[in-house]
Design a protein around this nucleic acid. Structure first.
Ligand SMILES: [Mn+2]
Ligand SMILES: [Mn+2]
Ligand SMILES: [Zn+2]
Ligand SMILES: [Zn+2]
Lengths: 140, 140
DNA sequence: GTAAATTTGCAACTAAGTTGCATTTGAGTA
DNA sequence: TACTCAAATGCAACTTAGTTGCAAATTTAC
């Protein structure tokens, strides 16, 4: 992992105003280096290569990053959350692609729904979430 | 639960060609009586009022119903599957509404996405899934 | 350097869903 | 109606993602 991911991660964590801990920086740097959303398990594996960290701590770091909008998390059909760092591009509403064979999750571009499905009377709209399913290039 | 739900359920189960067992019919009748998608837990509670059934059996009944297209299942952010009977209306592609306060899931009408987010090169499209989040009438 | 508040590590726990296997049951046939 | 056997069920044990409580370690402000 190139050093500039660590630098960038440190800056982003500092910017939240909360404590810039070793594990938060390391975890965010790992996510910055990835093109796809990663599960807790996958992040743990990558991190533990160089230095041990407790699985509960990682759960808490990821939860904190979500709350601070450093990452977004994506629910999958396998009942596992996947985490992807937020960049300028990802701060907007965007769709997710899920490969139904290898379960890899990719963030896609913006989309518009036309017409937005009408809600029952008295319901309040908040946001939409779009998932596209199919096969990724490696799984075809 | 009105008798006609049991009659309808029996007919639908028979129509699959597989065995028309007591538990399959009872479970499907329960789902036919509902306007919303139910979790395994919720179905179990409703069924156990009158007559005991094993939780593993219910998991297998629900899996079987999914495979036979009698129901569709919806993944939620709480890592729990919810099941909704398929009617004429539900056989098409449709969106789901999730109340972020009480977690209740409602099936919505058809929708069109414009433009469909373009996939990376080499990726194969299969289907889209749309979730609308907000508050239901009882939770506002 | 000291101190207070926050974060971490560890053990124990929760809950949805799965698996293996012996027993029961649905439904076709004699 | 009784017989047969593949399919369905019940039960115990298991897997796995995620959570909770608490004492010890770390961060950061003074
Ligand atoms: Mn994304
Ligand atoms: Mn639906
Ligand atoms: Zn794939
Ligand atoms: Zn609600």
């Amino acid at each position: 992992m190139p050093n500039n991911f660590l630098e960038k991660a440190r800056e982003l964590v500092r910017h939240t105003g909360d404590r810039a801990t070793h594990h938060r920086i390391r975890t965010l740097a790992t996510l910055l280096a990835e093109q796809h959303a990663l599960t807790h398990r996958e992040i743990e594996e990558r991190l533990n290569v160089k230095e041990q960290l407790d699985r509960v701590t990682l759960y808490r770091v990821l939860e904190w990053m979500s709350k601070k909008n450093l990452v977004h998390k994506i629910a999958g059909d396998d009942r596992v959350w996947r985490f992807r760092v937020n960049t300028e591009l990802h701060s907007h509403q965007h769709a997710h692609f899920v490969c139904t064979r290898c379960t890899k999750v990719t963030c896609l571009a913006d989309f518009k729904i036309k017409p937005l499905p009408s809600l029952p009377i008295g319901y309040l709209f908040h946001e939409t979430e779009l998932t596209v399913k199919g096969l990724c290039a490696e799984c075809i």
